[in-house]
Each structure stands twice: as C-alpha cells, then as structure tokens.
Design a protein around this nucleic acid. Sequence first.
DNA 1: CCAAAAGTGTTCTCGATACACCCATGG
DNA 2: CCATGGGTGTATCGAGAACACTTTTGG
Lengths: 249, 249
Amino acid sequence: MPARNHNKISNSTHHQQPLADFKVGVDNVIFSVDTAQNRLLVLLVMRQQEPFSNSWSLPGTLVRQGESLENAAYRIMAEKIKVNNLYLEQLYTFGGPHRDPREQTNSYGVRYLSVSYFALVRFEEAELIADKVAGIAWYPVKQIPQLAFDHHEIITYGHRRLKNKLEYSPVAFDVLPETFTLNDLYQLYTTVLGENFSDYSNFRARLLKLGFLSDTGIKVSRGAGRPASLYKFDEKAFAPFKDKPLVFI
Amino acid sequence: MPARNHNKISNSTHHQQPLADFKVGVDNVIFSVDTAQNRLLVLLVMRQQEPFSNSWSLPGTLVRQGESLENAAYRIMAEKIKVNNLYLEQLYTFGGPHRDPREQTNSYGVRYLSVSYFALVRFEEAELIADKVAGIAWYPVKQIPQLAFDHHEIITYGHRRLKNKLEYSPVAFDVLPETFTLNDLYQLYTTVLGENFSDYSNFRARLLKLGFLSDTGIKVSRGAGRPASLYKFDEKAFAPFKDKPLVFI
DNA sequence: CCAAAAGTGTTCTCGATACACCCATGG
DNA sequence: CCATGGGTGTATCGAGAACACTTTTGG
C-alpha cells in the first residue's frame, strides 16, 4: 500500500466535487493458536445477508452513533466469542470506491469504508457464540475458503502483522495461560512463525537471559519425559524492554 | 472492498442503535529533511475555517465522491506542494466520537473520521504552493506549535513510523537525489534517528557490504576535504532484501 | 603545509547458530 | 531400562561498536 516515486500528481484546483458520505465498518481478523495441533486459526462467520450472502467472511459490524472504532471492534468480539484475554489493535483502513457492491446500486449514495482490526485470543479459552442460524468457525490460515469482499487481502495483511508483533513484542503472554511451560511458548512461536525460526534450546536460552520470565518452581508432567517448569511473565521485569525494538525471536 | 457485514445476531436480542454517518477526512503528515541544517521538518498549514480557524494543522481534506483514500492523500499533496519524488503510506485511522467539534453542534448528525497518511519528500526540491491567504510552512519537529484537533498525536505517531521505515526499508532513496554521497545518506539518517544511532565509518561499511549501492565513479568536492564518490541505489541488487527485515541502521 | 572531509582497517565483544550432552519421568 | 521430552553447555561464526589510521582535496 505504500507508493513509491509517484511522479505525477494531478493538480485538481477545479471546482469542488461533492463530498462522499460514508458508513464505516469494522472488520476483525481474529487469530488463535491451536497448540495441540500446531495450527494458526482465523475466525470466520457465514454471512446471512446480501451482498455475499452465504459466503464466509471476517466478523464485522457497522459503527453506531456515539461508538468509537475501537469499541465497535470490541463489540464484534463480544458478539462472536467469549474470552478473558485478548490482544487487539488497528490494522488498516480499506476505503476505495466501488469495493462494496452496495455502492453500485445507488451510485451517488453512500460509500462503505472498512477499518480492520487485528486480534489474538487464546484458543483453549475462546468460546464461540453460535446463534441458531449463523455459521461461525475457526479456519486454519493455510485453508481459508473463498471470502466475501476483499477479506482475503485483509487476512494476509493481518497475518504479516501478527508475525511482526510476535517477534517484537510480548503479545504471546496475552494469550498464554497465567503460567506456561517454555515449550508452550515455543510451540506458539513455531506455529505462527514457521518451523525453522529457531532451535528450541537457543530460544530458551535467549528468553531466560532476558530475565522477565520467572520460574514458579511448579513442575508439570505431560506423559513421558522429564516434567517441565511452569513460568510466569513478569511484567515489572519486562518494563525496561518496553519501546525497545527486537526483543524476541 | 471491505465489508460491512453486519451479521447481526444481536438484531433480535439487543435493540439496535442507529448507525453513524460519516464524513471521512484524510490528513497527511508530510516530512522532509533539511540536511543543510540537520533538521527534520513537518509541513503545516494555517486553517482558514472553523473549527480551529487560525490554528496550525496538518494539511488535510475531506474525501469526495468517487475518490479513494489514497487519491485524496495525493490530492492534498498536489494542492500544497510540488515534488517529483515522494514516499506515501497510510498511517492510522482516528475515529472516536467527538474528536471533531463539529460533531457536537448537531449531536445526532454526522461524525468525522480521519485517515492519516504519512509522506516523505525531498526538501530541496519541494516547492510549497502558497495561495494568497493560506499560511503554509515547514516546522522542525522539535518546535511544533499548538495544533488543531488531535494533530499533535498524529505527528507523534508519524514520527515513530518514519524512524521505523528508515531503519527497515529503503525509503531514504525515494527522497535523495538520483546520485548522492554516502555522507548525504548518513546526514539523512542522523537527522531523523538522532545523533547517536551509528558511527559514520560503521554505517558506511555496513551499507557498502550489502551491495546495493553502486559507485558511479564520479567525485564531488564540497569545499575543503577529499572529494566524495557519488553513489546510486541499485534497485535490482536490492531485490533480495525485499520483505526481509532489518536491513539498515 | 595543514585542516577538513572521505575512506580504510583493526580489535573487541556479544549474540546467534548448531549441536552434543545430561536429567527426570512414564511405561 | 529405554524412549521421550526437558534442560544445560560449548564451539564457531559474524555482526556491530569504538576508534586509530590513511588519503585527497582546498586554502
């Protein structure tokens, strides 16, 4: 979406075109990680209305009077899913004309603009809210079906952002249980970033050296093998790293 | 285009608030670097209308019928400034209710939302378009006056983005002359990132090793001292670095 | 000749990578 | 006792920081 070297900018000092009227939609790219199956998932809903009725799409809504963009994004979450922890941030705004088929029917009418948000939730605790008619499901990012509008593009954009966030900020801890093993953390990273982002023992060493993971001393056994220590994310110890780039990976 | 898919499950349960109607504004944070004086500059314009008449503000406009967000951003550029090269990308969308005083006068009326764009232009070639009444000027980022709306916040956000862009991508070359000395490049970096981001000789060594700067062989003298080589940015040689993070700094 | 700017080289440290190896548990 | 997963240690390589040094110009 960046534009490089646009050499010609057409000057338009001619008389004023009328302003466009907008409805503003918010669409959420909601990710979760199924660590058991090592899959990165996106939440999709089945549209019940035109346009694109019976297509899968991102959960979205139109912004209401008195409602902020962010609140609209939270409202979507609340309507689709029950979670205790989540990470949410704005992604990008898509707003060219004629991207919504509804605009063509009444060509001088209202425009539709979409502000997309990106969210990360904990898969194990996320409870989908299925009403009687509407379909709602987690889809592996590798197997996204045809989507309404340009939602595929939005997911691609969101996925890129998720990878960056994971590498540069401690979002992972917003989405892990209070205590977790280093392997849980490692699985999360490999699932999102791909198999070959780092060796486990190096990952482990790097993170422990940083000093914001505290060992609770509690051990958990998962089948065979040596029991693993449960760790906690220590917010205070992390403080010095805030705003500093490149903490992870 | 995006989707206002309101799947309203909530339709039956909650009573539906009316949707908000929006005008959509685009505001540009336009940066340039005055290498002669080592200053990072932002373009500001004096507002001629209410609200915030006679306040400095970011150059902006309202989106017209049939116009894309990006085109609106380019139109602002064209109205305020003449340049041959620029870098432009979307920044963030600010859209809380009541961020624009116009909303309060007619409280159930239209909302104002701002999609901000971030631009970088070449200071030496940028020609400001001053119409008879409107004030327009470059301000050093260190000396921004009181601004209309939440424009100060937008600039802060844009400045952060600019720093990241410089570090991780070759925006600098969009804004340097076709050929430039390594010192020109270095000055640009120090001005934006701060004095202590790197030693000159290390900066130089790192960049040359990457191999996408080609020496034209031409030398330029600037007063006393050994003449400097003019370099070119070699787009083809840069290709392998595309999408790879962390190329610079 | 000398100051100033451009450009080169050297040393040191630290982090990333790739492993090999030890430890504790369940079956 | 051995397979399995958890955890520790070590050798190597290269990138980055600091800084001394050389080269080429103008005055």
